[in-house]
């Protein structure tokens, strides 16, 4: 469903991705780990077609994303959901309007049905009662939850989560991850979660990819990841300080 072949990206002299290759099968949910600035968000944006690689190819459902024209790319993106690190809610719209936005703009659903769906998803992310507020009037965690509701409301087939639990308290983090898990199971969602919530995220993912210095340093199960003696992984987990 998602396949990367030797993806390279550099910004000026900074090499961010240095030959990334992996494949994610349909229905698979993968945790993408890595230190700050290791290129996780950049990699997600490549998969979503927001950034083009300098070298290498990215395939979504067999179609190479960089070679698609605007119309084809829009049609591929119809099945996409993306939770941005900062939420990316529209400042000028209320929480309700933000969550309703993709349905209002991309579907012909009646107003009442949109309203019912928005309230259902706001309930799911624990934001019922905040629907009339603007993004500037709510906390960072609430922004993230509203953004999650907006991303999930269109029932995407591929979902990319950029740090869905950062800024949330442990209980809310857990409920957001279990929400992702339930949506993943219900919709057979294919997805990738960038997160630092280790080991909580391993409750919902069966595969882990670790990025280090622009390359895939580990690709395997959470159990193997935790048991690994690889110094890069041990250092990432905060156990060895002077390896890298």
């Amino acid at each position: 469903m998602i396949r990367l072949e030797g993806v390279h990206k550099r910004f000026g002299s900074l090499v961010v991705l240095n030959g990334i290759s992996f494949e994610i099968k349909k229905g698979e949910l993968v945790a993408l780990l890595g230190g700050s600035g290791s290129g996780k968000s950049v990699l997600l944006k490549h998969i979503a077609g927001l950034i083009k690689p300098d070298k290498g190819k990215i395939f979504i459902n067999g179609a190479e994303i960089a070679s698609l024209n605007k119309k084809e790319l829009e049609s591929v993106r119809k099945g996409f959901g993306f939770l941005f690190q900062g939420g990316a809610l529209f400042d000028s719209l209320t929480v309700f309007e933000n969550v309703a936005f993709p349905l209002k703009e991309k579907t012909k659903l009646p107003k009442e049905q949109i309203e019912e769906m928005v309230f259902r998803y706001l309930e799911l992310v624990g934001l019922r009662g905040s629907e009339g507020k603007y993004p500037s009037q709510i906390s960072g965690g609430m922004v993230k939850r509203a953004a999650l509701a907006r991303a999930l409301i269109t029932d995407p087939k591929i979902m990319l989560f950029d740090e869905p639990t950062t800024g949330l308290d442990p209980q809310m983090s857990l409920s957001i991850l279990s929400l992702i898990n339930s949506v993943h199971k219900r919709l057979e969602l294919t997805g990738m979660i960038v997160t630092h919530a280790i080991p909580t995220v391993f409750k919902i993912t069966k595969r882990v990819i670790l990025l280090h210095k622009g390359k895939v340093a580990f690709d395997g199960t959470p159990q193997d990841f935790m048991d690994s003696k690889d110094p890069v992984i041990r250092q990432f987990l905060g156990e060895e300080e002077d390896v890298i």
């Binding site: 944006k45 979503a48 927001l50 829009e74 049609s75 993106r77 119809k78 996409f80 993306f82 941005f84 690190q85 900062g86 990316a88 809610l89 529209f90 400042d91 936005f101 993709p102 703009e105 991309k106 269109t154």
Partner: peptide, 17 residues
């Protein structure tokens, strides 16, 4: 500009808009 740096424009693109 603020919409660009806060990824709101990316969000619109990803909605296929």
């Amino acid at each position: 500009g603020i919409m660009r740096i806060s990824e709101q424009i990316d969000a619109l693109e990803l909605m296929g808009l």
